[in-house]
Design a protein around this nucleic acid. Structure first.
Lengths: 218, 218
DNA sequence: AAATAAAATTAGTCTTGACTAATTTTATTT
DNA sequence: AAATAAAATTAGTCAAGACTAATTTTATTT
């Protein structure tokens, strides 16, 4: 099996691949993990030797079929543990990500499946991300952000793109969670900030960065 | 906090201390962990620097107050996770130990307490070992073994001293679990093997090693 | 007490996965 | 196209935590 570090790289590559359809460069991985690009180059060699990725200067890093499978399992475990922590252990929204980062590395062939069953086969995790099934398939991923909504339009918060506790705590303060209805009242051209109405209540202004971190269902 | 390796040493020292009242030597630790004594000497230095243990050639290794506290928490987490795996995820008796070895290292200030609450504050784990409470206290540990029982005597299996799957599978085959009633029919002086009656049924002969691995309540 | 065996320790090596600094390659400007 | 900037890579270092081999210390026998 893979080391902790290898698994973290795999997951990171998987997430970059899902997020952007773009080319995955060593620098992008380095930024995402907070590592030095030189370290990334070392690990690219290691994962290539293990046939988990292919690396080509033109195409960037790509997961092999095996790499995809392994990365999907790590993500599955992460999201299942998040559901467990929130629903069974009553953790708050903003606390679960970091703990799940550790739990996702527990290695046992049947653990994810047993946990899945115990939790009642959830489709989405508490941040709105789809949980890969045992066969690797998963429900729809939302990709439209609040910033993409046209002025006057309504939407439902489907997921969050950012799982840092600072962002999640801010959302809680604004009374926004998965499922909350939002209307985009106005876009301020100056800095792309957004004036929104949350759940039919008064107006609030949020930044462009905020708008791009909220995934919606129209 | 401590590294994975430091935690494993701490737990090992704690268990040796609980098991035998004896002096804990580098060699004993090395054997218990399957490591080289030279590596143990290195780690003894590290844990001493961190003030988690004291080492004296005469007295051997001893946990400091802080070391005891930290080790107890690791054992608490281990045993709680074992209950979770068996009761909630339907794992078998012999499968849970190794997974709990990984889970016990998940670091979060409130995880053990939340898990404890979720499980209904169990007193003993599935192997009959007492689970330390949040305050460090714990229920009685059984220390009499089946081999200590006098001929003709009856007992109840209270705990197992060995958590390897080979031993636990053997117990399952013999239909022995925590709570099973056993009578010691005869001790064979030649090799100290034991003739026992399990739950009032026919006779079986087991080895001395077996007898010393079963903890009983008389 | 001397001889021997066992345990503890030191010294030096190896692997993993990070780092910095220097260099080469590739992109972007002017 | 040349100059510059950015990205990728190489080379060498470091810490953790394991190892082996050699040595010293402590215990046990005879």
């Amino acid at each position: 099996m893979h080391t902790l570090s290898e698994e973290n790289y795999l997951k990171c590559i998987y997430c970059l691949w899902q997020d952007k359809g773009q080319k995955i460069t060593p620098t992008a991985i380095a930024e995402s993990l907070g590592n030095n690009p030189a370290s990334v180059v070392d690990m690219i060699r290691k994962l290539t030797d293990k046939q988990l990725i292919n690396y080509d200067k033109k195409k960037g890093v790509e997961l092999t079929a095996q790499g995809q499978k392994d990365a999907t399992l790590i993500v599955r475990r992460h999201r299942l543990w998040e559901v467990f922590l929130l629903e069974k252990l009553d953790y708050d929204w903003d606390e679960i990500h970091d703990i799940a980062e550790e739990l996702e590395h527990i290695k046992d062939a049947s653990l994810a499946d047993r946990l899945d069953k115990f939790l009642g086969f959830p489709e989405y995790d508490p941040h709105g991300d789809p949980i890969p099934k045992a066969n690797g398939k998963m429900a729809k991923r939302y990709s439209t952000t609040l910033a993409d909504l046209k002025t006057g339009g309504y939407c439902r918060v489907a997921a969050v793109k950012d799982t840092t506790s600072s962002f999640l705590q801010y959302l809680q303060k604004l009374d926004i969670s998965i499922g909350t209805k939002i209307q985009l009242i106005e876009k301020i051209p100056f800095d792309n900030s957004l004036v929104i109405s949350i759940g039919g209540n008064g107006r609030t202004t949020v930044s462009q960065k905020f708008g791009e971190s909220v995934l919606i269902d129209i």
